[in-house]
Design a protein around this nucleic acid. Structure first.
Length: 421
RNA sequence: GUGGCUGUGGUGAAGUGGUUAACACGCCGGAUUGUGGCUCCGGUAUUCGAGGGUUCGAUCCCCUCCAGUCACCCCA
């Protein structure tokens, strides 16, 4: 093997593509029921969009982007997520002129230059939803419900839904300085990462997995105590709606999203058996993003679901449907001459909507029967010299082993009739 | 980007410093004249991730690289 797929990428081979189709079908069905329509945006965008949209200080932008200069000298980046692209399209095509909120979903590949690991790839696929143009907590609850519904329909159990509010540009700075005040004294005892986070994004310290850091930050003020009235009302409103809808959720005050644009609602759905990469869904409100990208202030909320991780979870719980490779009929030929007749017959059968296969390797009759059995094929139509001479085929029922001579012209009806039984 | 583990045929895997690299599955073919699923028989790795080095000799020892995997970081 000379050339292999690039690091962190995966081929989706024929034996697993049906799994993808299945998951994507469920996603589309949920979206239809919740009133979200598909949007397809380019897989690459101007780098500038992500710099502004995601935030220059984020890990994604600082070290994970696939950025290159195209032949026209433009800086282009393979999309690491699709909220920025969706918002860009929303503005570019003036979708704010249509009925609001704009409810959209997407399914497609994203690219991040990460080190691959369980549930983490350089090219991965997300199913995401964006609702642009509404402030209310009802929309927040709705998109969370859509995610829950998606997992429910797939049959996934043992998922944890965590929600939090990360505040807004009014209350977050207040909280930020409060937390810095609280931790400043013991800063030297924190891990290296946390010390660097102290100035840049002190809220992330609360999210540190390091046990010592967790201990040290245990008594730090919680963001929920510092929310402004508007954010607090929004957050309690969301909880009221979720509770009314019967959703099982947990508050997680340490839940902080990695992207700069999030405001108020942040949430995450985890499937713990996946190990370190247990987040299957992450999202939140991004009321500041649209203005950041050049639109007028517009509230919005969205999330993304990692499909590789969903597939992993489904595999773990044995919830993936086994693909049906069965075909109606296999047409077996005896020699080169009858092979032509077999091809002609196969074409007719296929035209009639019957899944049909034949031999392409010039195999002997015995090997063809073997092959037919592997699919498995319900019937085998054998065309030998004798049959060809009388314009008939030998129709063999592979379940019972019975075989009968049938007029070539009658074959389709005959098969249909037998399949009824 | 950092660290641990791993790297033998299509797959799962034995193995040893020195003639022909087990075995199982799969695949291909065969078991008298044109017929499957069971059984039996045969075939199927000039080669042990790549490149160097040590050695009379390396798949087995050393180094580098690459890849996979898991974890940190971060995230879907």
């Amino acid at each position: 093997m000379e050339i292999s797929a690039p690091r962190g990428t995966k081929d989706i081979l024929p034996d697993s593509s049906s799994h993808w189709q299945y998951v994507e079908r469920i996603a589309r069905e949920v979206c239809r029921d919740y009133g979200y329509q598909e949007i397809r945006t380019p897989v690459f965008e101007h780098t500038e969009l992500f710099l502004r949209g995601i935030g220059e200080t984020t890990d994604i932008v600082q070290k994970e982007m696939y950025t290159f200069t195209d032949k026209g000298g433009r800086s282009i980046t393979l999309r690491p997520e699709n909220t920025a692209g969706t918002v860009r399209a929303y503005l570019e095509h003036k979708l704010y002129g249509e009925s609001q909120p704009a409810k959209m979903y997407y399914i497609g590949p994203m690219f991040r230059y990460d080190k691959p690991q369980a549930g983490r790839f350089r090219q991965f696929h997300q199913f995401g939803i964006e609702a642009i143009g509404s402030t209310g907590p009802i929309v927040d609850a709705e998109i969370i419900m859509a995610a829950v519904e998606f997992f429910t329909r797939l049959g996934l159990k043992d998922l944890n839904l965590f929600i939090n509010s990360v505040g807004c540009p009014r209350c977050r700075p207040v909280y930020r300085s409060k937390i810095q005040d609280a931790l400043r004294g013991s800063l030297g005892e924190f891990c290296e990462d946390c010390r660097s986070r102290f100035d840049r994004n002190p809220m992330r310290i609360l999210d540190c997995k390091n046990e010592k850091c967790q201990q040290l930050s245990k008594n730090a003020p919680q963001l929920s105590e510092c929310l402004c009235d508007e954010c607090r009302d929004h957050f309690t409103g969301l909880q009221t709606v979720l509770t009314a809808a019967g959703v099982d959720y947990k508050l997680n005050p340490r839940l902080v999203r990695g992207l700069d644009y999030y405001t108020k609602t942040a949430f995450e759905i985890q499937y713990p058996p996946l190990g370190a990469q247990s987040a299957v869904c992450g999202g939140g409100r991004y009321d500041g993003l649209i203005e950041e990208i050049g639109g007028s202030p517009t509230p919005a909320i969205g999330y993304a679901i990692g499909l590789e991780r969903v597939l992993l979870a489904l595999e773990k719980q044995e919830l993936l449907p086994t693909p049906d490779r069965g075909i109606a009929i296999f047409v077996a030929a005896f020699d080169d001459k009858t092979r032509v007749l077999a091809f002609k017959l196969a074409t007719e059968l296929r035209r009639a909507g019957l899944a049909c296969e034949m031999d392409y390797l010039g195999r002997g009759l015995k090997a063809q029967l073997k092959q037919a059995n592997r699919y498995p094929a319900r019937f085998v139509a054998i065309i030998g010299e004798e049959e060809a001479a009388q314009n008939k085929v030998a129709l063999k029922n592979m379940l019972t082993g019975e075989q009968q001579l049938v007029d070539a012209g009658q074959l389709i009806q005959k098969i249909r009739a037998e399949m009824e039984d």
